[in-house]
Amino acid sequence: MTELQNIAKKLFDDGSINLLIGYSNNENGGTSAIFIDNSADIDKLIYNENCHQNLMVYFQKPEVKKFGKLAFVVSLPGLKSVLEIASENQIKDGDAYFIAIDKDGNPSLLQDFHQIEDFITNNQTKPPMGLLKLMEKINNMTREERWQYWTDEFSKCIKCYACRSVCPLCYCTQCITDINIPQWISTESSPIGNLDWHIARAMHLAGRCIGCGECMKACPVDIPLALLTANLNKSIAIHFGDEPGMKADYKYPLSHYKLEDKENFIR
């Protein structure tokens, strides 16, 4: 039994949880999420470098919630999303257990937000170089080139909404794109409809995105979606000096006024 499985077993054994969401090997030779509701299945629980999916996306699902006591296997991005949704009143301290995997792959059990905050501070990682390079490249483009770049990228979109489905922060029960009175965003994957959707999505995640990159990994047509939110986060950090996913009592910079906030950046 691995250390991870030991922790999980103990949680089941002492009746702390009814459901554990983690990773297991799938038939295609990859990994996928596994929902374990009794200790018998614990031996399927694994963790390796292929386990990247942000499982916190399942937290708000009613089918999951009805189990009551929950536990999640999470790495750094997952924990960041815990703090972010905590700041948005979606999760309370004690709502779930988190088996955190550190950068060396070792599991540990975290129970409250303080522990999570400390874990995140101690396990910071840098965003992948490739992403930063691409971001720099795009930022160095002229405005026209940038427009062309994103128009080209968005033209590939097939409106499958996978980006929305995998995002732990897209938890609205009624998404803006599902509203038809009025029809804010056209449903077909037309150029304008695609643009509408991706702008709305990026703006809704500005200053909230914790950078797990799931949207980009899930995209079947490889649009580098995480870049949009990452760049918006960067602007917000420059102007207001705040970063999402670091504190459970994070004050969303776009909705909280601080006396020292700059007001002269709007020109």
Binding site: Q174, S255, H256
Partner: peptide, 12 residues
């Protein structure tokens, strides 16, 4: 029925 209770509205 559609409110998810993020309370962004409350802070603004």
């Amino acid at each position: 029925s559609t409110c998810v209770g993020c309370f962004l509205c409350q802070s603004v």
